[in-house]
Nucleic acid binder design. Structure first.
Length: 272
DNA sequence: GCGACAG
DNA sequence: ATCTTGTCGC
Protein backbone atom coordinates (compact mmCIF):
# COMPACT_ATOMS: atom_id res chain seq x y z
CA UNK A 1 0.00 0.00 0.00
CA UNK A 2 1.53 3.30 -1.13
CA UNK A 3 0.83 7.00 -0.45
CA UNK A 4 -2.11 8.37 -2.42
CA UNK A 5 -0.88 11.86 -1.59
CA UNK A 6 2.95 11.81 -1.91
CA UNK A 7 3.06 15.53 -1.20
CA UNK A 8 1.88 14.81 2.35
CA UNK A 9 4.65 12.33 3.16
CA UNK A 10 6.36 13.78 6.26
CA UNK A 11 9.93 14.92 5.68
CA UNK A 12 12.03 14.72 8.82
CA UNK A 13 14.63 17.09 7.38
CA UNK A 14 12.16 19.93 6.87
CA UNK A 15 12.31 23.06 9.00
CA UNK A 16 9.85 23.44 11.82
CA UNK A 17 7.97 26.08 9.82
CA UNK A 18 7.71 23.73 6.83
CA UNK A 19 6.45 20.95 9.07
CA UNK A 20 3.73 23.12 10.58
CA UNK A 21 2.82 24.43 7.15
CA UNK A 22 2.40 20.87 5.84
CA UNK A 23 0.22 20.05 8.84
CA UNK A 24 -2.11 22.90 7.92
CA UNK A 25 -2.36 21.51 4.40
CA UNK A 26 -3.05 18.03 5.71
CA UNK A 27 -5.74 19.35 8.07
CA UNK A 28 -7.38 21.23 5.20
CA UNK A 29 -7.48 18.06 3.09
CA UNK A 30 -8.55 15.72 5.89
CA UNK A 31 -12.13 14.45 5.91
CA UNK A 32 -13.77 14.36 9.31
CA UNK A 33 -17.08 12.89 8.25
CA UNK A 34 -17.93 9.25 7.66
CA UNK A 35 -16.64 8.60 4.16
CA UNK A 36 -15.86 4.90 4.04
CA UNK A 37 -17.36 1.89 2.32
CA UNK A 38 -17.50 -0.69 5.11
CA UNK A 39 -20.32 -1.29 7.56
CA UNK A 40 -19.28 0.12 10.95
CA UNK A 41 -21.64 -2.29 12.67
CA UNK A 42 -19.65 -5.19 11.25
CA UNK A 43 -16.42 -4.01 12.90
CA UNK A 44 -15.67 -6.37 15.74
CA UNK A 45 -12.93 -8.27 17.52
CA UNK A 46 -14.98 -11.43 17.49
CA UNK A 47 -16.52 -13.26 14.58
CA UNK A 48 -19.81 -14.10 16.36
CA UNK A 49 -21.11 -10.57 15.94
CA UNK A 50 -20.98 -10.96 12.19
CA UNK A 51 -23.32 -13.95 12.35
CA UNK A 52 -27.09 -13.67 12.26
CA UNK A 53 -29.60 -15.57 14.42
CA UNK A 54 -29.22 -18.72 12.39
CA UNK A 55 -25.46 -18.59 12.69
CA UNK A 56 -24.82 -17.73 9.11
CA UNK A 57 -22.39 -15.04 8.18
CA UNK A 58 -24.30 -11.98 7.12
CA UNK A 59 -21.49 -9.70 6.11
CA UNK A 60 -17.74 -9.89 5.67
CA UNK A 61 -16.00 -8.20 8.64
CA UNK A 62 -13.92 -5.19 7.50
CA UNK A 63 -10.13 -5.37 7.38
CA UNK A 64 -8.88 -3.45 10.42
CA UNK A 65 -5.19 -2.67 10.84
CA UNK A 66 -3.32 -1.71 13.98
CA UNK A 67 -0.09 0.32 13.75
CA UNK A 68 2.48 0.63 16.50
CA UNK A 69 6.17 1.14 17.05
CA UNK A 70 8.99 0.16 19.37
CA UNK A 71 12.41 1.76 19.56
CA UNK A 72 15.99 0.54 19.60
CA UNK A 73 18.52 3.30 20.24
CA UNK A 74 18.36 5.29 17.02
CA UNK A 75 16.16 2.87 15.12
CA UNK A 76 12.40 2.63 14.87
CA UNK A 77 10.60 -0.70 14.61
CA UNK A 78 7.30 -0.03 12.84
CA UNK A 79 4.64 -2.69 12.43
CA UNK A 80 1.20 -3.15 10.95
CA UNK A 81 -1.10 -6.01 11.85
CA UNK A 82 -4.23 -6.51 9.78
CA UNK A 83 -7.17 -8.55 10.93
CA UNK A 84 -10.57 -9.55 9.58
CA UNK A 85 -12.73 -10.12 12.62
CA UNK A 86 -10.48 -12.06 14.97
CA UNK A 87 -8.23 -13.55 12.30
CA UNK A 88 -4.84 -12.06 11.50
CA UNK A 89 -4.70 -11.67 7.74
CA UNK A 90 -1.34 -10.00 7.28
CA UNK A 91 1.57 -8.45 9.14
CA UNK A 92 4.35 -6.20 7.93
CA UNK A 93 7.24 -4.43 9.60
CA UNK A 94 10.19 -2.17 8.91
CA UNK A 95 13.27 -1.26 10.92
CA UNK A 96 14.50 2.19 9.97
CA UNK A 97 16.90 4.81 11.25
CA UNK A 98 15.28 7.54 13.34
CA UNK A 99 16.05 11.02 12.09
CA UNK A 100 14.58 13.41 14.61
CA UNK A 101 13.70 13.35 18.31
CA UNK A 102 10.19 13.29 19.71
CA UNK A 103 8.67 16.75 19.75
CA UNK A 104 5.06 17.18 20.95
CA UNK A 105 3.01 18.19 17.94
CA UNK A 106 5.51 16.87 15.39
CA UNK A 107 5.24 13.14 16.07
CA UNK A 108 4.31 12.32 12.46
CA UNK A 109 7.67 13.64 11.29
CA UNK A 110 9.51 11.24 13.59
CA UNK A 111 7.34 8.15 13.11
CA UNK A 112 5.49 8.79 9.85
CA UNK A 113 8.28 7.76 7.49
CA UNK A 114 9.00 4.51 9.36
CA UNK A 115 5.28 3.68 9.42
CA UNK A 116 4.91 4.29 5.69
CA UNK A 117 7.89 1.99 5.13
CA UNK A 118 6.10 -0.83 6.94
CA UNK A 119 2.77 -0.13 5.23
CA UNK A 120 4.49 -0.23 1.83
CA UNK A 121 5.00 -3.96 2.32
CA UNK A 122 1.31 -4.58 2.85
CA UNK A 123 -0.33 -6.48 0.00
CA UNK A 124 -3.87 -5.84 1.20
CA UNK A 125 -5.65 -2.53 1.64
CA UNK A 126 -7.18 -2.10 5.14
CA UNK A 127 -10.70 -0.68 5.46
CA UNK A 128 -9.66 1.08 8.67
CA UNK A 129 -6.32 1.82 10.35
CA UNK A 130 -5.98 2.38 14.10
CA UNK A 131 -2.97 4.49 15.11
CA UNK A 132 -1.39 4.85 18.52
CA UNK A 133 -1.53 8.60 18.97
CA UNK A 134 -3.77 11.55 18.24
CA UNK A 135 -5.60 12.36 15.05
CA UNK A 136 -7.63 15.54 15.04
CA UNK A 137 -6.80 16.22 18.69
CA UNK A 138 -3.71 18.18 17.72
CA UNK A 139 -2.54 21.81 17.74
CA UNK A 140 -3.07 22.05 13.99
CA UNK A 141 -5.61 19.23 13.75
CA UNK A 142 -3.06 17.04 11.99
CA UNK A 143 -1.84 14.43 14.45
CA UNK A 144 -0.21 11.16 13.39
CA UNK A 145 -3.50 9.37 12.61
CA UNK A 146 -4.74 12.25 10.48
CA UNK A 147 -1.43 12.88 8.74
CA UNK A 148 -0.73 9.27 7.76
CA UNK A 149 -4.40 8.50 7.15
CA UNK A 150 -4.68 11.41 4.71
CA UNK A 151 -1.35 10.55 3.08
CA UNK A 152 -2.60 7.03 2.36
CA UNK A 153 -6.17 8.26 1.92
CA UNK A 154 -7.38 5.43 4.13
CA UNK A 155 -10.06 5.69 6.85
CA UNK A 156 -8.24 6.06 10.17
CA UNK A 157 -8.66 6.82 13.85
CA UNK A 158 -6.20 7.82 16.55
CA UNK A 159 -6.14 6.35 20.05
CA UNK A 160 -3.86 8.14 22.51
CA UNK A 161 -3.14 7.25 26.12
CA UNK A 162 -2.63 10.87 26.98
CA UNK A 163 -4.31 14.15 25.99
CA UNK A 164 -2.15 16.37 23.78
CA UNK A 165 -4.41 19.42 23.75
CA UNK A 166 -8.03 20.45 23.86
CA UNK A 167 -10.42 20.68 26.81
CA UNK A 168 -12.51 17.81 28.19
CA UNK A 169 -16.15 18.76 28.61
CA UNK A 170 -16.41 16.86 31.89
CA UNK A 171 -14.12 15.81 34.70
CA UNK A 172 -12.33 12.60 33.68
CA UNK A 173 -11.84 11.12 37.12
CA UNK A 174 -13.12 7.69 38.02
CA UNK A 175 -15.64 7.08 35.28
CA UNK A 176 -17.38 3.77 34.58
CA UNK A 177 -16.56 1.67 31.52
CA UNK A 178 -18.39 2.87 28.43
CA UNK A 179 -18.43 6.50 29.52
CA UNK A 180 -17.28 9.20 27.12
CA UNK A 181 -17.06 12.97 27.03
CA UNK A 182 -16.16 15.40 24.22
CA UNK A 183 -12.73 16.99 23.88
CA UNK A 184 -13.28 20.49 22.55
CA UNK A 185 -10.98 22.88 20.74
CA UNK A 186 -9.68 25.75 22.85
CA UNK A 187 -7.35 28.67 22.12
CA UNK A 188 -4.40 26.27 21.77
CA UNK A 189 -5.92 24.67 18.68
CA UNK A 190 -5.34 26.52 15.41
CA UNK A 191 -7.92 26.92 12.67
CA UNK A 192 -10.73 25.53 14.79
CA UNK A 193 -13.66 27.39 16.26
CA UNK A 194 -13.38 27.14 20.06
CA UNK A 195 -15.79 24.48 21.19
CA UNK A 196 -15.44 22.32 18.12
CA UNK A 197 -15.50 18.67 19.16
CA UNK A 198 -12.12 17.21 18.19
CA UNK A 199 -12.53 13.81 19.77
CA UNK A 200 -13.57 12.03 22.95
CA UNK A 201 -12.11 10.80 26.19
CA UNK A 202 -13.35 7.21 26.35
CA UNK A 203 -13.33 5.09 29.49
CA UNK A 204 -12.68 1.86 27.61
CA UNK A 205 -12.26 -0.21 30.73
CA UNK A 206 -12.60 0.22 34.48
CA UNK A 207 -12.27 -1.92 37.59
CA UNK A 208 -14.96 -2.05 40.22
CA UNK A 209 -12.41 -0.68 42.65
CA UNK A 210 -8.77 0.22 42.37
CA UNK A 211 -6.46 0.56 40.66
CA UNK A 212 -8.24 3.22 38.65
CA UNK A 213 -7.67 3.20 34.92
CA UNK A 214 -7.36 6.40 32.91
CA UNK A 215 -9.46 6.87 29.78
CA UNK A 216 -8.04 6.79 26.24
CA UNK A 217 -8.38 9.76 23.91
CA UNK A 218 -9.98 8.96 20.59
CA UNK A 219 -10.08 11.28 17.60
CA UNK A 220 -10.78 11.03 13.88
CA UNK A 221 -7.84 10.41 11.64
CA UNK A 222 -9.29 10.65 8.15
CA UNK A 223 -12.63 9.78 6.54
CA UNK A 224 -14.27 9.16 9.93
CA UNK A 225 -16.43 11.47 12.02
CA UNK A 226 -15.86 12.05 15.75
CA UNK A 227 -18.79 10.03 16.99
CA UNK A 228 -18.11 7.13 14.66
CA UNK A 229 -14.41 7.13 15.53
CA UNK A 230 -15.23 6.58 19.19
CA UNK A 231 -17.95 4.03 18.37
CA UNK A 232 -15.47 2.06 16.27
CA UNK A 233 -12.78 2.10 18.93
CA UNK A 234 -15.30 1.01 21.53
CA UNK A 235 -16.24 -1.95 19.31
CA UNK A 236 -12.57 -2.82 18.94
CA UNK A 237 -11.90 -2.96 22.67
CA UNK A 238 -12.19 -6.46 24.07
CA UNK A 239 -11.96 -6.20 27.84
CA UNK A 240 -8.79 -4.15 27.85
CA UNK A 241 -8.01 -0.45 27.98
CA UNK A 242 -6.52 -0.43 24.49
CA UNK A 243 -8.28 -1.60 21.33
CA UNK A 244 -7.32 -5.03 20.02
CA UNK A 245 -5.60 -3.79 16.84
CA UNK A 246 -3.26 -1.70 18.97
CA UNK A 247 -2.57 -4.52 21.39
CA UNK A 248 -1.67 -6.94 18.61
CA UNK A 249 0.55 -4.40 16.89
CA UNK A 250 2.20 -3.66 20.22
CA UNK A 251 2.99 -7.33 20.80
CA UNK A 252 4.29 -7.79 17.26
CA UNK A 253 6.48 -4.70 17.60
CA UNK A 254 8.02 -6.23 20.71
CA UNK A 255 8.74 -9.44 18.80
CA UNK A 256 10.44 -7.65 15.95
CA UNK A 257 12.34 -5.49 18.39
CA UNK A 258 13.70 -8.56 20.19
CA UNK A 259 14.81 -10.08 16.89
CA UNK A 260 16.36 -6.82 15.74
CA UNK A 261 18.21 -6.31 19.02
CA UNK A 262 20.80 -8.95 18.15
CA UNK A 263 21.26 -7.77 14.57
CA UNK A 264 23.55 -4.68 14.28
CA UNK A 265 22.03 -3.02 11.23
CA UNK A 266 19.53 -3.97 8.59
CA UNK A 267 20.07 -7.68 9.05
CA UNK A 268 16.49 -8.51 8.18
CA UNK A 269 16.05 -12.27 7.82
CA UNK A 270 12.30 -12.28 7.23
CA UNK A 271 12.58 -9.75 4.44
CA UNK A 272 10.19 -7.06 5.58
C1' DG B 1 9.18 33.95 32.29
C1' DC B 2 6.36 29.48 33.53
C1' DG B 3 3.84 25.47 32.55
C1' DA B 4 2.08 21.86 29.18
C1' DC B 5 3.21 18.58 25.98
C1' DA B 6 0.67 12.00 21.57
C1' DG B 7 5.13 8.50 21.39
C1' DA C 1 8.79 5.56 24.01
C1' DT C 2 12.40 3.16 27.36
C1' DC C 3 14.74 1.29 31.97
C1' DT C 4 12.59 -3.09 35.30
C1' DT C 5 11.07 -7.56 40.22
C1' DG C 6 7.94 -8.75 42.49
C1' DT C 7 3.28 -8.84 43.70
C1' DC C 8 -1.81 -8.54 44.31
C1' DG C 9 -6.01 -10.50 42.36
C1' DC C 10 -9.47 -12.87 39.20
Amino acid sequence: MDPARPEFVPDASATREEMESLQHEVAAAAIWDDAFAFDPEAVSTRSERTLDDTGRRTREPPLVAGVDQAFLDDRAVSVVVVRRGDAVVERAHAVTALEIPYIPGLLAFREGGPILAAVADLSCEPDLVVFDGSGRIHYRQAGLATHIGATLDVPSVGVAKGLLCGTPEDDLAERPAGWRTPIRADSEVENADPGTVLGHALQSRQYDSRPIINPVFVSPGHRVGVGTATDLVERLCDGYKLPEPTRLADAYADEVKAESAAAPEGTDESGS
